[in-house]
């Protein structure tokens, strides 16, 4: 968390000056649409976290709320039983894939 925390704190201050259609504001809009959606992140060690998308930054560090940890399928032990983690941050370089639940995705943003 330190790297995210120690740097600039508030977002959105420079946003007003950006023109509406800039890549920056488009990207922000995309990401903001995903906020509080159920997200599934696969990590480099094979584990998967499922939780609500709460926060990200340029390095793709992602914070998930009410996160649950699932082991990789090859692990026969305690299969299918998630472990509750709560608030968890996945460092960007450990993110292998990100998926979002379509049910919780409004149709307008389906194809971001």
């Amino acid at each position: 968390m330190s790297q995210m925390a120690s740097e600039n704190e508030e977002n959105g201050t420079e946003m007003q000056s950006e023109p509406e259609e800039s890549p920056y504001s488009l990207a922000r809009a995309k990401l903001e649409n995903l906020l509080n959606k159920s997200m599934r992140i696969r990590m480099t060690d094979g584990r998967t976290l499922v939780g609500l998308f709460l926060c990200t930054d340029r390095d793709c560090n992602v914070i998930l709320g009410s996160a649950q940890e699932f082991l990789k399928s090859t692990d026969s032990f305690s299969q299918g039983e998630p472990r509750v983690l709560g608030l968890a941050m996945v460092p960007g370089h450990h993110v292998v894939s990100i998926e979002v639940e379509t049910e919780s995705l409004p149709s307008s943003t389906q194809g971001i």
């Binding site: 508030e10 920056y24 990207a27 906020l35 926060c55 930054d57 340029r58 793709c60």
Partner: peptide
């Protein structure tokens, strides 16, 4: 997602 993240400024947090 990763592409969108790259557009963010250094140190900027996108959050609720």
């Amino acid at each position: 997602f990763k592409g969108a993240c790259k557009e963010l400024n250094l140190g900027e947090l996108l959050h609720d």
